[in-house]
Design a binder for these strands. Structure first.
Lengths: 344, 344
DNA sequence: TCGAAATCTTTACGCGCGGAAAATTACTGC
DNA sequence: GCAGTAATTTTCCGCGCGTAAAGATTTCGA
């Protein structure tokens, strides 16, 4: 590694002995230049450690290689994991993924979209906040840049990819009914369409089985589900408000909070003898297997959702319009798998 | 909102009736233009929704407004929270934070640094992977851009901000010794300096109190601490390898895994009657209060660490060199607080 | 060996904005 | 109303690279 600092492509082209346009060509696609010149460039690259300025690259390209990823809450393990998978897929495809988190706030979501738009990205993968999203802003954004929406099915963008709550929840309800008392439903704050869909899916599943749905909603809003599960769930337990010993939670984080409340009240959770409560979740968060007891839940197909979203986006970027029979925006829904652990 | 799309500052200057350089001035600092022109610009802004192209802005500024944030593992709640705080502080200061996660892999860390460098950021806040970092690469990076290192004290950059393990760990050891059997130490994989410092801090604290340190290290590597705590910790429990009933874990995630293992083996954890084990952690992760039982731990001062890191970085960006008495790179260490919960 | 095809070099322009300099205009306070 | 100053306009140039076009060179097949 030489001391001499390479400041731009011009200088690099000088030390490598290859003309600047060819060097430019190389950086856009190494395989587009002759083997021998490629070797010469890469030899110089090993010596001088140069990377083209990203701002300059993207400023003047008609199609940038930037892909925006916007999630509502990066500290949520589901999104942390999704981002990890998506980032990797983008990088491997030669794109530059750039992550934004709304941290649960509309202003930050709008800000992220606005910033992202000013980058004129090739495309965007966004999981909107949901109910609190500024739908008009999201809509405007999606008109400017090819957008695939995931997780939270807000009706914008060119496609949606997510989980099929109407498959996963009934599957869990079936299981719970077969193996014990029919579950009541402990609902997360209705921050996004998933919250409502899961509630409705529960209602339908129960009715189909001939049971009365028993739904418990909470007053609290926000993304700190564990706390909500703990406090509100704990209160419901203390008030003996749950009419059955089986509680299906909207998501794992809520369930983990509820498990904590049950533990502190000395209630044994599980399906064995001497258990006072069964608790089930939804999502199979990375930490659900380590709860006490380990959480019975439905796994979302993280990998499929990530891969399909990215694949779908690339098709739009390539200018392929994806048609469905109905002529509507395509919606890809993946099925969950029952993850049986000790909690229910 | 007019339909007409504003494509660049030129067009916006036309519709707003203000010259382009003045518009440019406005976007760099709205308070730098006269009230009346500011109003005219903002009126046009409400009508046309224009944002200067970020690539063009940053390409030609001697000092960009970009700030890079690099963390080793975004799915770790500690880093998720730190990123949240840091991002907010940067935005409020008028900077553009851009987050990179190494996802635990050197190649990705190097890649992030390389990408970041090509953005010629005003500064960078990085929490290196630690032991597996390519130190030379991090060093090279920090020579090019003002860098503040946080959490993991790798000896590069212009300053370090983190927690004082030699305060927090002894405090916990003291507490545990006072309130029951002296703790043994269940060590996280030695992926970064914190791992080693915490072990040493434990050793010293025990010796100072006249006890023999009892350290259990683990073969596994990687960032899935819960799994490691569960599997390796569970094995140690099964083998009755822990010589005391009190276990101090390197961090909360490890402790949570261990709690899970203990639960599944039917061991009651806590400090009351009939408890077989006491378990303590370190960091006060957002979820530690919801473990079963809730985890006794040491809280890291997230907010102070974030604020000081950012503040320190801004001083370097402003060209102020921060001197210490010894003439060395400044290291800001914050003290932890004992968080007493039920597990120990 | 020759010629076509592939690749490279040269030259030149443009992207959208920052920023400097000089000229002009708009505001202060008196 | 006036000077003095502050703000704005005009006019340029430059950042680092993408990209196009024309000409030079290399490669490769027959």
């Amino acid at each position: 590694m030489e001391d001499q600092k390479i400041r731009n492509m011009e200088e690099f082209s000088a030390v490598s002995g290859i003309s600047r346009p060819t060097v430019s060509k190389y950086f856009n696609d190494p395989s587009s230049v002759r083997r021998s010149t490629r070797d010469r460039i890469e030899k110089a690259l090993r010596q001088y450690d140069f990377r083209p300025n990203l701002f300059a690259i993207n400023q003047n390209r008609k199609l940038t290689k930037t892909i925006g990823i916007v999630v509502p809450y990066l500290a949520d393990p589901f999104f942390a994991e999704m981002v990890r998978l998506i980032e990797r897929l983008c990088i491997d495809a030669g794109y530059w993924p750039i992550v934004f988190s709304a941290h649960g706030e509309v202003e930050l979501e709008n800000n992220a979209l606005s910033t992202l738009a000013s980058l004129r990205p090739a495309g965007a993968l966004i999981a909107p906040l949901g109910r609190s999203s500024d739908l008009e802003a999201v809509q405007r954004f999606s008109e400017e840049v090819p957008t695939v929406v995931f997780d939270s099915n807000v009706k914008v963008g060119k496609a949606f990819v997510g989980s099929n709550n109407f498959q996963s929840i009934p599957m869990m309800v079936d299981y719970l009914c077969r193996s014990g008392e029919p579950p009541c439903f402990f609902e997360m704050p209705p921050i996004n369409p998933n919250a409502n869909k899961r509630r409705e899916a529960y209602r339908q599943a129960m009715e189909r089985l001939g049971y009365d749905p028993m739904i418990f909603k909470v007053e609290a809003m926000g993304w700190d589900f564990e706390r909500i599960g703990f406090e509100d769930g704990g209160r419901l337990i203390a008030d003996r408000a749950f009419p059955t010993n089986t509680i299906l939670c909207s998501n794992d984080r809520l369930a983990i909070g509820l498990l904590s409340a049950a533990y502190q009240k000395g209630l044994r959770v599980g399906r064995g003898e001497g258990c006072a409560l069964r608790v089930a979740g939804h999502d199979d968060h990375p930490w659900s297997r380590f709860s006490c007891p380990p959480l019975t839940t439905v796994s979302q197909d993280y990998r499929s959702i990530a891969e399909s979203s990215v694949e779908m986006l690339f098709r739009f970027i390539d200018g392929q319009e994806v048609e469905t029979e109905t002529g509507e925006r395509p919606e890809l829904l993946f099925e969950g798998k029952l993850i049986m652990r000790a909690s229910a």
